[in-house]
């Protein structure tokens, strides 16, 4: 089972997503914006990152680039909403491995994490 960093500014989304990851036996650490995500990532070195895109302080794309710049092996999947297709293409160019569209299905999230750490 993996240590997953969950980044989203909406506490409710974090609650739902953390719950389903924990049910699957994953350890979940959380961050509420991109800036926090970079700090937590460097301090705790999670196995995988699930990253929201639209966030205050530092957005998901910038955080992704920052994390990948400091750890080229970082495994990040984007949590995205409809209409952000072009941003996701940017994220993939910047090294994101996968994406999950909100509102997400449980299986999609779990499969994305399994793929990141597998």
């Amino acid at each position: 089972m993996a240590k997953v960093l969950l980044v989203d500014d909406a506490a409710f989304m974090r609650m739902r997503c953390a719950k389903l990851l924990q049910e699957e036996g994953h350890e979940v650490i959380e961050a509420a914006n991109g800036r926090e995500a970079v700090d937590v990532y460097l301090a705790q070195k999670p196995d995988a990152v699930l990253m929201d895109i639209t966030m205050p302080e530092m957005d998901g794309l910038e955080a992704l680039r920052e994390i990948r710049a400091r750890d080229a092996g970082a495994k990040v999947a984007m949590l995205t909403a409809m209409g952000q297709q072009s941003i996701v293409i940017e994220a993939i160019k910047s090294g994101a491995k996968d994406f999950v569209v909100k509102p997400f299905e449980r299986e999609r999230v779990l499969a994305a994490v399994a793929k990141l750490v597998g």
């Binding site: 409809m82 297709q85 996701v88 993939i92």
Partner: peptide, 10 residues
């Protein structure tokens, strides 16, 4: 798939 184009791009 919601965004087949992105998957194809990947």
């Amino acid at each position: 798939s919601e965004w087949p184009a992105v998957r194809a791009y990947q």
